[in-house]
Amino acid sequence: MKLRLYATLALLFLHAPLLVLIVFSFNSGKFTAWEGFSLRWYAAAARDSQLIDGLWNSLLIAFASAALATLTGTLAAYGMWRKAAPVLSAGLYVSLITPEIVTGVSLLALFQWSFRFLHLQLGMHTVIAAHVAFSIAYVSIVVSARLRGYDRSQEEAAMDLGATEWRAFFRVTVPYLAPAIAAAALLALAVSFDDYVITSLVAGVDSETLPMVIYSMARKGVSPVVNAVSSCVVVIFGALVLVSERLQRR
């Protein structure tokens, strides 16, 4: 009974801000005082082409970088597990704990230096590259955790029965890792979607993301339109998490 109360309080503490956000997204007034139910901020958000473009860019970047990072990160984790490479896996943690601003500035320096002979500009491609770079560590760590409980002899058994190494990997190892890969992909999606610091440093003319649009509104005071958009994001990501839970249970 006590435990249940404690859990309820903890959950409330975690999610109360989100509830407040969602409630005020339906407020008819402009300020944080309840005036009545209205959908005007949702309508305003739907008309705001900058927000919509930002949302679209964010989704595009999140899905592209999550796909690339999940692929590379999973293979990296598998390789490190096979070769038992402690230095490499320690390297992953380093990239995980490096402050974002440092990662961002170093990526920017790299891009600016390479642009001298590549004749490119900052844009969508640099943001996706940057997001892949920092998501790989998350993916690898999640997949590595699952690999730790995996017995290589399962793969060997498959190969004894005539499977090639590739076939054994795809038919035995990948299905075993599937829940971890799905979780890692969702994590990559989420970290990419809400990153501001690194993104704002490496973004160019065509790659303004939703967090950047919202952040740029701060000077004038955040408008309730942002509440509406954020509520939609919470619902979309909530649904994604539920779907992945379902998938994992199967």
Binding site: Q50, Q112, Q121, L122, G123, S200, E208, S216
Partner: peptide, 21 residues
């Protein structure tokens, strides 16, 4: 292509490269 920034510093950080677009 219309974009927004939050501070002079954010704008300057990009403009100073001379290749901001």
């Amino acid at each position: 292509r219309y974009g927004t920034y939050e501070s002079n510093e954010e704008m300057l950080a990009k403009a100073v490269t001379g290749n901001s677009g």
